[in-house]
Design a protein around this nucleic acid. Structure first.
Lengths: 169, 169
DNA sequence: GGTGAAATTGAGATATG
DNA sequence: CATATCTCAATTTCACC
């Protein structure tokens, strides 16, 4: 509801809670409290704060696309033709196989992640997408991992500047 | 546990359950039953079957990466140098910002999806990845959607073959 | 901000029709 | 597959530290 604002940074306890809840979103406060050595009310308050601040956006069942009949995955780089841009001429309901849309820097404007049930299905899909502009399709042969939980990252270490170039300003 | 086998195809009721559970993974059987007009035990049996057959792989809290301090997203196409392949010289724990790894057909062998807390962070990360081979980085400017639920897709319609070419075999 | 304990509410697993 | 009962567990709210 509220606009995006910088939330108070997450501490180590919050990250432990997030790790547990991303691995199993149905854990009770009692079980969570046991795992991170805190009391259930304390856990409940932290979780509620992360829910209300937008860090936790919801809870979902994880579905295996292959198990659900969509074993094929591909990425499609697109450069839309003027007036035929996919985002302006098509709605999400028309393309259920489209699972991600990102606008990119660089020479191709859009990156699509698509799932399909068969090569024939993928072929038909690529045919349809081709109506919207130039594109380049990459079929995924295997996936090492996907949907990895959000984890804390190390603070950015400053890049060691080459001697003689000094700081950027 | 068991090997991947073709499961009995999902019917319309299963897909409705999956839609509800992907939108809210904490719904009770009672509430699920109310929404799809079925009895709680019937719902429970369907959900259990999908869990055991591997269609539903688990339940997870959804975390907003930006809210968790990682607002930047990028895709990195890589062609690993021989003997320096990322997958063989690095472990997942060393690169928490790496959220997806896909091996691709085409001229670049690998596509990485990475998250970072800042441009400085991303810069340092790209520097590290560069040690493993030739690469091409695409920064995401905006995301229309991501983590879209798995939905039923229309059966592949056969591509209309050009007259005069006949069937493929 | 976290701990402890009690009461209320609700979920899930039966057995039966 | 629907209905109904039962048993068990979790959440919430309070007072205290």
């Amino acid at each position: 509801m509220s606009t995006v604002r910088s939330n108070p940074p997450l501490d180590a306890t919050d990250w432990r809670l997030l790790a547990e809840l991303q691995a199993d979103g149905r854990l009770s406060f009692k079980e969570l409290a046991r795992r991170i050595h805190l009391s259930p009310p304390a856990v409940a308050e932290r979780v509620r704060r992360m829910e209300q601040s937008g860090v936790i956006t919801g809870y979902a069942a994880k579905v295996d696309p292959a198990g659900a009949g969509q074993p094929l995955l591909a990425f499609v780089q697109m450069r839309c033709s003027l007036g035929r841009c996919l985002l302006r001429t098509t709605t999400a309901d028309d393309l259920p196989e489209l699972v991600e849309i990102h606008k990119l820097s660089g020479e191709h404007c859009t990156l699509l992640k698509v799932r399909a049930s068969s090569l024939a299905h993928l072929e038909g899909l690529v045919e349809r997408l081709g109506e919207h502009g130039e594109m380049r399709t990459h079929i995924v042969l295997s996936t090492q991992f996907d949907g990895r939980p959000v984890e804390p990252v190390a603070e950015p270490r400053p890049v060691t500047p080459s001697a003689g170039w000094g700081a950027g300003r």
